[in-house]
Simulated scan of single mutants.
Amino acid sequence: MADSYQTYPEQPVRRRRRGRRLLITLFVLLLVLAGVLVVADRLAVGIAERAITEQAERELTRQQITSSQPDVSVHGFPFLTQVAGGRYESITIKVRDAEGPVRGQSVRLPEINIDARDVDAPLDTLRSGQGTITAKTVVGTGTVSYDTVAQFMGKPGLTLSEQGGKLAVAGPLEILGQERMLRGTADLSIVQGQVAIKFDTLDVEGLTVNPLAEALIKSYARQISIKLPLPAMPFQLDVQEVRPEPEGLAVRATATNVPLNGA
């Protein structure tokens, strides 16, 4: 009696293998497509950042501010959807070593940071440079070095610093024929776009207080109380706040509905 063998169809196995290959192929294609989209997205970011950089350089030149090349970052992901809509969540512009003329002198701001929100920038405007790029709100922060502030006070030897959230001064003072060390703090405010620095009281070490000495100290306090002018801020920024920081006087300026390209 001949042996009998039972055979099974191979068709379902082949179908499963073809199905797996198809899924793998589809997965690879999706990865490639995602990579292409990411690359395209980053390329579009680069184009927009270069366009905004050029506009920022023109604005700084218009305000007679010299600086290093602005560092522009366009935020938000995916970026291509922002390009399509011509509206961007946030654009930051960082300017280093900024310097502008004020009353025949140069005021140096080591760094200016500008944060533009809700920016309307049509693609055609970015490509051609024609048209208006507008930010709904712009906030700028910068720092004036203490050396610059002391220069405007016109009293050699004074050292300025931040102490306990106040602007502090220290330095030698010749009074009643003797040189003494003075110390004191100032009140800060913004008056018509300038930083008002007002010293009300000063302490002089080792000095016996009498009416004459007190009058001389008050006179000196008035001499070093100044209104510090600031260079014209870019993008129509209006200075609103000032506070002492370890590296200098930090100023904060704001503006609304700002044309970033000066159009």
Rank of each mutant, 00 (worst) to 15 (best):
Y5A: 10
Y8N: 14
R14H: 09
R15S: 05
G19W: 05
R20L: 15
R21D: 15
L30K: 14
L31F: 11
L31S: 06
V36P: 05
V39H: 06
D41I: 00
I47V: 10
A51I: 13
Q63I: 07
I65C: 09
S73M: 14
V74G: 03
L80V: 06
Q82L: 13
A84G: 06
G85W: 05
S90W: 11
I93Q: 11
K94M: 12
G100Q: 10
V102G: 04
S106K: 15
V107E: 14
R108T: 03
L109M: 14
P110K: 00
P110W: 00
E111I: 08
R117M: 01
V119R: 09
S128C: 07
Q130F: 03
T132P: 06
V138A: 09
T143Q: 06
V144P: 03
S145Y: 04
D147P: 02
P156F: 13
T159C: 02
S161H: 03
K166Y: 14
G177F: 10
R180L: 07
L182F: 13
G184E: 04
A186E: 07
Q194V: 01
K198C: 02
F199H: 07
F199K: 08
V204F: 09
L216S: 03
L216A: 04
R222V: 10
Q223T: 15
I224K: 01
I224V: 09
P229G: 02
A232P: 02
P244R: 08
A253R: 07
P259A: 10
P259R: 04
N261M: 08
